[in-house]
Computed example of a mutant assay.
Amino acid sequence: MKILQIGKFYPIRGGVEKVMYDLMLGLSAQQVHCDMLCASTEDYPASTIQLNPFAKLMVMPTKVKLAATMLAPDMIGKLRSIAKDYDIIHIHHPDPMATLALFLSGYKGKVMLHWHSDILKQKMLLKAYKPLQNWLLKRADLIVGTTPVYVAQSPFLKNFQHKIDYIPIGIPAMTYDQASAKKIQESYNHRKIIFSLGRLVEYKGFRYLIDAARHLDDSYVVLIGGKGPLKEELEQQIAEYQLQDKVKLLGFIADEDIPSYYGASTLFCLSSIIKTEAFGIVQLEAMSCGKPIVSTDIPESGVSWVNKKDESGLIVPIEDGLAIANAIKIITENKEYFNKLVVAGKNRFQSNFTLANMVDKSLQLYKQILSN
């Protein structure tokens, strides 16, 4: 069995390309041939990297970035020259460049379409891309999502439910250094740390998490990691509510430091408000560290499937700071309930969201495709 994944870019900047890369490494570790073809990020040079005897990363140069899409025309010629060598092409959506490359490749074999999310914000891009997207939906032998909820409720997939399945995202369990976590706790005087992490953009709903801090007493501190265009706006909100001692915007946190913040936290909060947040990998990181979660009930998103109510955490309505605060208090003020969520959340992670689970489910579906 030889698999080629196409889509997104390298080096890794987001969830989709992390899934591709982790899946490639996981499959190749089981001696399944899995290569990856993608565009480069920013000024990263075109290159071919042989990761191991069963995995090769082929990075094509990006000529221009348009509407969050890396345009790398060399992907077309490269795919035309190698497509016949693979039993299955596993294409990751949304990525118009990858879809165009597949359309022009002349490939006649099996196709798995990994539908990570709908195109929501780029309306003009979607208008131009829709005919190609419709071709891809019809061309795919199997369409998989990351949760059963998202693929069941996406308006783009309503006519393709006969060939739908899902592969939950899986990650290696996150571990943290106890001493580093303790140092962070000490720097905030051992207050209850409510941790959140993500780009400071509208759909992350951080303004509602900041609003939640107004309803928490001084035994709590909210730490928000990440950078983005809303930094000044969020700082103004913090100042307006006089929450400078209770809410901290941490800015960019280096990858090696992130586990310590999970370790130091009391619980994790995902405050996103629209289904651009399709899954929420940060929830897996929190579960693997034994941290309960407060997340939001985003319409048509899989976030509330990942964080299961009363098992790994609590779920509240979107755009409701008071509801977030009440859920935080329910979890943190009941020690028995808190401990239950810690144990059950870790178990949920191990049962559903490990890298091994993602690799095994992918292999199962690859075999299913090839047997048809």
Score class of each variant (00 low, 15 high):
Tyr176His: 12
Ile143His: 01
Val343Leu: 03
Gln364Met: 10
Ile328Phe: 05
Glu311Val: 15
Met287Trp: 06
Thr332His: 01
Gln31Tyr: 06
Ser40Ile: 08
Asp43Ser: 12
Glu232Ser: 15
Leu249Asn: 04
Ile298Arg: 05
Phe279Thr: 08
Ile274Gly: 08
Pro61Cys: 03
Ser304Asp: 05
Thr146Pro: 04
Leu200His: 06
Met1Ala: 14
Val64Thr: 15
Ala72Pro: 07
Asp297Phe: 08
Met70Pro: 00
Leu234Ala: 09
Tyr166Pro: 01
Gly263Ala: 03
Gln237Pro: 09
Val221Ala: 00
Pro11Cys: 06
Lys361Ile: 12
Leu370Cys: 09
Gly280Thr: 07
Lys158Asn: 02
Ser81Pro: 00
Val222Trp: 11
Tyr261Gly: 01
Lys367Leu: 12
Gly7Lys: 07
Leu100Thr: 10
Met75Pro: 11
Thr146Met: 12
Tyr203Ala: 04
His92Met: 08
Ala325Gln: 00
Thr147Phe: 09
Val282Asn: 03
Cys38Ala: 02
Gly198Val: 07
Leu341Tyr: 11
Lys78Asp: 00
Gly14Val: 05
Ala264Tyr: 11
Lys361Arg: 14
Phe54His: 14
Ile281Thr: 06
Leu79Arg: 09
Ile167Tyr: 12
Trp115Lys: 07
Ile91Ser: 01
Ile167Gln: 03
Leu120Phe: 07
Val342Glu: 05
Asn357Ser: 05
Pro61Phe: 03
Val16Thr: 14
Thr99Pro: 00
Ala264Gly: 13
Lys367Ala: 12
Phe268Ile: 05
Ala140Pro: 09
Thr296Ser: 00
Arg191His: 01
Glu285His: 12
Leu249Lys: 02
Leu223His: 06
Leu157Thr: 06
Asp74Leu: 15
Leu370Trp: 09
Met287Ala: 01
Asp87Ala: 13
Ser40Met: 05
Asp320Ile: 02
Phe349Arg: 03
Val32Glu: 11
Lys367Val: 10
Ser154Val: 13
Trp135Gln: 04
Phe353His: 12
Ala46Asn: 04
Met1Leu: 11
Asp211Gln: 15
Leu322Lys: 15
Gly14Gln: 03
Lys227Trp: 13
Cys269Gln: 04
Trp135Tyr: 12
His33Glu: 09
Thr175Tyr: 02
Arg13Asn: 06
Gly345Lys: 11
Tyr203Ile: 04
Asn352Ser: 08
Lys63Asn: 15
Ile274Leu: 09
Arg207Ala: 00
Glu186Met: 15
Glu186Thr: 13
Glu256Arg: 11
Ala212Glu: 03
Arg207Thr: 11
Gly313Ser: 03
Lys8Cys: 01
Ile318Pro: 03
Leu341Gly: 04
Asp141Pro: 12
Tyr176Trp: 15
Val16Ser: 06
Met75Tyr: 03
Ile89Cys: 06
Ala72His: 03
Leu142Asn: 04
Leu25Lys: 14
Trp305Met: 09
Gly106Leu: 08
Val64Gly: 02
Asp245Ile: 00
Gly321Ile: 14
Phe54Pro: 00
Ala278Thr: 14
Lys18Arg: 15
Asp85Val: 07
Leu57Arg: 01
Tyr366Lys: 10
Glu333Phe: 02
Tyr176Ile: 13
Asp22Met: 06
Ile164Ala: 00
Ile315Tyr: 08
